[in-house]
Simulated scan of single mutants.
Amino acid sequence: MTQTLHEVFGGAERKFRLAIGELRELQEKCEAGPATILARLMSYQPQSEFLKRPHPKDFDLGENDSDYISALNVFALVRNFGGDWRVDDVREPIRLGLIGGGITPTDAWVAVSRYVDTRPLTEHISLAAAILLKALSEDKDDAVGKTEVETTEPKAETDA
């Protein structure tokens, strides 16, 4: 059994849960497994948001300037690691998590349309990642693999 995350969303505390059905739908929507989606979300680097690509004209030797080459390599490295998430990587864990948490699909759609789609997506990356992380983490109270064996006392034989 997956765990339930309790977080404030849209001004109210909500429950988010991704069980196997929601995880399968998430895979279909995002065309990736839950761990890959989580990795993409975790790759977001806010410091790279306003990083601009260097231009050769800004360097004395243009494209052959070692400082330009270095700046271009740093830019490429930071942007590659920090920009791999996709729109549905953010939206769908939240929408499906709300459904798994107990609200109707229609109410989940309305909530995501109202509170995610109208704001910068980067505001919701941490929530989407937390929902996925909770779904993929072990529930310490779950009894999977811990079978309880029922024991009975042997009946006493009676001589009749």
Rank of each mutant, 00 (worst) to 15 (best):
T2H: 04
T2E: 09
Q3C: 06
T4M: 10
H6E: 14
G10M: 01
E13G: 04
E13Y: 05
K15M: 06
R17I: 09
L18M: 09
A19E: 12
A19N: 12
A19P: 05
I20Y: 13
I20A: 15
G21Y: 07
G21D: 11
E22F: 04
R24M: 13
E25G: 06
L26R: 03
Q27M: 12
K29C: 01
K29M: 06
C30V: 14
E31I: 00
A32W: 05
A32I: 00
A32E: 10
P34Y: 07
I37C: 07
A39R: 09
R40L: 03
L41Q: 05
Q45A: 11
Q45S: 10
P46R: 10
Q47K: 06
S48Y: 01
F50S: 07
F50I: 01
F50V: 02
L51F: 02
R53W: 00
P54R: 09
K57P: 00
K57L: 10
D58V: 02
D60G: 06
G62H: 05
N64R: 09
S66E: 07
S66D: 03
D67W: 01
D67S: 05
Y68G: 01
Y68H: 01
L72P: 02
V74I: 13
V74M: 05
F75Q: 03
N80A: 12
F81C: 09
G82I: 08
G83T: 14
D84E: 12
W85S: 13
W85P: 05
V87L: 13
D89C: 10
D89E: 08
D89I: 12
V90Q: 08
R91W: 08
E92L: 10
P93L: 11
I94E: 04
I94W: 11
R95Y: 02
L96Q: 09
L98T: 04
G100R: 03
G102R: 03
I103S: 02
I103Q: 08
T104S: 15
P105M: 02
T106Q: 13
A108V: 04
A108K: 05
A108Y: 02
V110K: 07
S113A: 15
S113L: 08
R114K: 14
T118Q: 15
P120T: 12
T122I: 13
E123N: 14
H124C: 11
I125S: 11
A128C: 09
A129K: 01
A129N: 03
I131R: 03
L132K: 02
L132H: 06
L133G: 00
K134M: 11
L136Y: 00
L136D: 00
S137H: 02
D139L: 07
D141V: 04
D141P: 00
D142F: 07
T147A: 14
E148C: 08
V149N: 13
T151D: 10
E153S: 13
K155D: 15
K155E: 15
K155T: 15
K155C: 13
K155N: 15
E157A: 14
A160H: 10
A160D: 14
